[in-house]
Amino acid sequence: MSIVNVKNVFKSYWRDSMEIPVLRNISIEVPEGEFLGLMGPSGSGKTTLLNLIAGIDQPTKGSIVVAGTDVAKLNESQLAKWRAQNVGFVFQFYNLLPVLTAFENVELPLLLSKLSKKERKEHVEFALKVVGLEDRIKHYPKQLSGGQEQRVAIARAIVTDPTLLIADEPTGDLDKTSAEEILKLLVQLNTDFKKTIVMVTHDPRAAERAHTIKHLDKGELT
């Protein structure tokens, strides 16, 4: 059963009156439990495709059905709610809020849920334990290494138990050792926790961990 179904998707941007096509007639199916790697040169449209699947951007044409919902048909408010319930994000530069501790950063997505404070605490502690940072809950991002920051970001991505994990160059800002740890963690989430992962990467070592690799070039799947 496919959890992501991208069908005949086109995406263009407009600069003044000029249309700049970024994605051309893209169709992809991602089965549940898949670990998909998207590769391609800079400007090939892989991050744009990732953003469309994650519901933070809308296609110009085509349909994107994720976990049974056609995200292209949702309005902004519905999309925000949908993202909070279905998508976990892992960014290249971690995107942690610097004024919040690791615990508070991981707790953020749960503030949008109906969980009680006690339940949120349990969820956060569990997520931080999964990424091996249960002893760093009171640390601020600047007190953590890059690898630890990315692990906090992964904890934040999984704390709501989302349907889909979206990772945009998750090892792009890390040294070799830290990158290896993050990739191991992603594989563990995929195998042990059955998380479906869509990952954009330039890194061949990261791509090796994916079950399936799709290549994009000039907005088309090759």
Binding site: A54, N95, P109
Partner: peptide, 14 residues
């Protein structure tokens, strides 16, 4: 700006 983008991506509304 990035923090705002992150918050919005996580599901916080305008």
């Amino acid at each position: 700006t990035v923090e705002i983008g992150t918050l919005r991506a996580l599901g916080f509304r305008r």
